[in-house]
Structure formats: structure tokens, C-alpha cells
Simulated scan of single mutants.
Amino acid sequence: MTKSILIIGACGQIGTELTLALREKYGDVNVIASDIREGTDVLMKSGPFEILDATNYDALEDIVMHYEVEEVYLMAAMLSATAEKFPERAWTLNMNSLFNTLNLAKEKKIDKLFWPSSIAVFGSNTPKEQTPQHTLMEPSTVYGISKQTGERWCAYYHAKYGVDVRSVRFPGLISWKTQPGGGTTDYAVEIYVKALEKGSYSCFLKKGTKLPMMFMDDAIRAAIELMESDGAKLSIRSSYNLGAMSFAPEEIAESIQAVIPTFTISYNPDFRQAIADSWPSSIDDSQARKDWGWSPEFDLARTTAEMLENLR
């Protein structure tokens, strides 16, 4: 079955790999990549690409109508650490791009929308261990505030206008294919790069900072599986908790030392420590498992093996 799919923010950490995975599944010509800037050669040459500012409704609508787009994956966002430096710009990008796509769906110009939320919606008062699907959310970052607000708007548009919007709260994501994009969990990518380049790593989070993480292949699969699921079985239209593994910096260091025994880690926490301290250490994703059969495939050992092998 062919369908026309638009990826907004296709040049980002998730967007690049999501675009390539969807092109492999649905055909290169049926998956339109878009971003405010050009991406990698592989992304640009493997299928259609459009320069797009997702905060410009008319420009977005033009692309949707031209390609007769049925599904949109809205991946454009300013992430946690970067958003703290540019709060108003982050709010404008994160919220206006969402409103534009929700309104296109409301007007029946697209059929279905995927929009990622994040563990950043949780705050320091949220239960840390096995954070429930429904719980207290008092985010303390611009990124988290925009994602929590976005969740409420998604649920509202579904209830009020019947918009078929689907979402997951991504944990920290680990990938060897694309550079991290200014998030608080970026250390979990940097550590592998530095292990191979220098044999040592200075971590911007302190020892014992346990956070939920996920290998990118699992994250991409989760997004596509949720979009392919029977909508009648979905009980959450704000955003699903999504889990895979949880670890602290010293645990990822130990997994690297199992392969590179001489690797060393030191700790030099910066402003990102306060952000990490406000987030959960593990996630209860039982609702996602129940509603659409979510199950992760990568643990820390397998992630480390994949990262080191491919970065080499």
C-alpha cells in the first residue's frame, strides 16, 4: 500500500533516520523530506526534498497540497539544552509548527499526524522510578513546557475535531548515524565517539544520574508502529510513555570498558545537570505495550556493541 508521507524536520537526529526508514518501507518517491536547511547527501539524494519553515502555514499547506500528503511526521523542534539559551525562539518553533499541522488535520487536508513528546514533560515532583503514564507534570524547562502544552493541544484537537494525532514521550536517544541536536542526554552519544577518538570522556552529568534511554532503531520503529496501529485501540491521544533501558554515566562507561578496557571517564557537571535532575530515572510504558504491542529490542550491552562497531 502506497501513501504520501511528509517529514518535517527531516535533517535532525531522529528525522534523518526516520525518513530513510520510511522510504525503505513505502518507497523513496512517496516520502517527502523537508527542513529549514539541507541535510546529508544520503537524505537529499534518496527522495524528494523541500526547504520548509514549519512555522509558515501557507508554505506548509502548499507542500501538503502539491504532494497530496496523507500523513505527517512533525519532528522539527528546538531541544532541551539549546531551548534554554533561546526560550522565545524555542517556544515559537515548537508550538507554531504543531498548531500548523494540527490545523491542516482539522481542515481534513491530512489524515494522520505523528508528533513526538518527551520525558522533559515531567518535573522534579514527578515520581522518579517507573514514572506512570498519568502523573504530576511540572516541567522546569522551555522544551518541557512546550511539549506538555503540545500534549494537551493534541488531546484537545482529537476530542474536539476528531484529529488523528499520535505521540510518544521519547526518552534520551542514542544513534551513531547522525549528530545529537542539543539535548541533555547527548552525553550518551558523545561518550562512544570520545571513547574511540581519545580513550577518555569528560561527562557533563554527574555520576549516578540515571535517565531513561533508547537506541534509535527502537525509537524509529516505535513511531512507525504507532502510526500503523488501529486507531480504535489507542486510548492515549496526548502522548504515550515509551521505555527501553535506564542507566547512569558510569554504567555506560562500564559497558564500553568491557570492549575497551583502557577507557576512562571523568565528571564535570554543567547547567544540564539541573535539567537531568528534574527528569525520571525509569518509565512505566505498560499502556503502550497493552494498546499497540510496544516492545524494545535494544538493551545497553547491545547498544554499546552497535555504537562502537559502527562508529569505528
Rank of each mutant, 00 (worst) to 15 (best):
I5L: 06
L6G: 02
A10M: 06
C11W: 00
G12S: 08
Q13E: 08
T19E: 02
A21H: 08
R23K: 04
G27Q: 06
V31D: 03
R37S: 13
V42Y: 04
S46T: 11
G47A: 00
I51R: 10
D53Q: 07
D53T: 03
T55Y: 04
A59M: 09
L60H: 07
E61C: 13
D62F: 05
E68S: 15
E70L: 00
E71L: 01
M75V: 01
A83G: 14
A83M: 03
E84H: 04
E84I: 08
E84F: 00
F86L: 13
E88I: 09
E88Y: 13
A90Q: 06
L98A: 12
L104I: 10
L104D: 09
A105E: 04
I110D: 00
D111M: 10
K112Y: 00
W115D: 07
I119W: 07
F122I: 07
S124I: 14
N125V: 12
N125W: 08
Q133M: 13
H134R: 13
T135D: 02
E138R: 06
S140W: 02
S140A: 12
G144L: 10
K147F: 07
W153P: 00
A155D: 13
H158A: 12
K160G: 01
K160Q: 15
V165R: 03
S167H: 01
R169H: 06
R169I: 08
P171T: 10
L173D: 03
I174A: 00
W176N: 08
G182S: 09
T184N: 02
T185P: 00
D186V: 04
A188E: 05
V189E: 01
V193G: 10
V193E: 14
V193T: 13
A195N: 02
L196Y: 02
S202A: 14
F204A: 01
L205E: 07
K206F: 00
G208T: 11
T209D: 12
P212E: 10
M213H: 12
M213G: 00
M214C: 14
M216Q: 11
D217K: 15
E225P: 03
E225L: 13
E225Q: 15
E228I: 04
D230K: 08
R237V: 05
S238I: 06
S239I: 03
S239N: 01
N241K: 05
G243P: 05
F247A: 14
A248I: 09
E250V: 06
Q257S: 09
Q257D: 01
A258K: 15
I260M: 15
S266V: 11
S266A: 14
P269L: 01
D270I: 04
R272A: 04
Q273T: 04
D277N: 14
S278M: 07
S278E: 11
W279Q: 13
W279L: 15
P280V: 05
S281D: 13
S281W: 02
D284F: 11
D285C: 09
A288N: 03
A288V: 09
R289W: 02
G293R: 05
P296M: 08
E297G: 00
E297S: 13
F298V: 08
F298Q: 04
D299Q: 11
T303W: 10
T304S: 13
A305N: 11
A305H: 11
A305W: 04
E306G: 01
L308R: 05
L311F: 02
